[in-house]
Amino acid sequence: MSNTLLQVIVSGLLLGAVYALFSSGLTLIWGMMNVVNFAHGEFVMLAMYVAFMVYTSLGLGPAASVPIAAMALAAVGMASYFLLVRHIMKGPMLAQILGTFGLSLFLRYSAFWWFGSDFRTLPDTLVGSPFQFAGLRLDAPRLLAGVVALFVTLGLHLILTRTSLGSRMLAVSEDATAAQLMGIRPERMQAAAWGLAAGATGIAGALIATFFYTSPTVGETLAIVAFVTVSLGGFGSVPGALVAGLLIGLVESVSAYKLGPVYKDVVVYSLFVLVLWCRPQGLMGKM
């Protein structure tokens, strides 16, 4: 195998881990509430601006911006739940879709108004320089994002399957009335799910900001990948998002290198359609 191809594969897997990282929040909200959050990309965008502000006002990197963004976004997520989602859940399906879509436009244009249309980047020395390892060139910010992606996925999976909070959230998602009869307050659990999902998205955004550009429309670019990752992995499955993210990153990179960048989307979406044709619930989703 040529050295370049190996480099392409490694870059693709790291990219895929990042895709998985910013998709886990989206899949969690779906799994818990059967609501598609169309404002997901804008949550990532807000977290990126948080990272940017932490750098400009405090001069600090991801060690500070990741926890701050996680908390800020958890608050945004819960506020979105109490002020908007809770109400539109009572309406028809279309209202739910258009409700979060409206939220996404609101957040995007608020960012235009507040931050302006300029592109911004964090200095690339914030995390560390790229380094050479076994003949491969690795970029420290991407490597950090990739490693954190694995931990966040594992953490979310453990919270959902091994803690009482997770069990209660799952109980509400399966049957809210029955859960209520057991003494669980559905609204609280749903708010917790939004907080958890948005918090994970906050971590993702703060890390992506270290190697990507930040602009009010960046959420639009990233959201498409998140939706594909989530439906390929299976709506609601956190490990599924990880597997799908890695797969998409790898396929994208190799096909862009072998066939040319304009064809990579054709390959990725063919694979996507093929998988959903055989397994409509996604790779790891439940029917």
């Binding site: 862009a256 960048p261 304009v262």
Partner: peptide
């Protein structure tokens, strides 16, 4: 090499 401008990655 032609590519689409709205891309998330240009490493390849």
């Amino acid at each position: 090499i032609s590519y689409s401008a709205n891309t998330t990655d240009v490493q390849p």
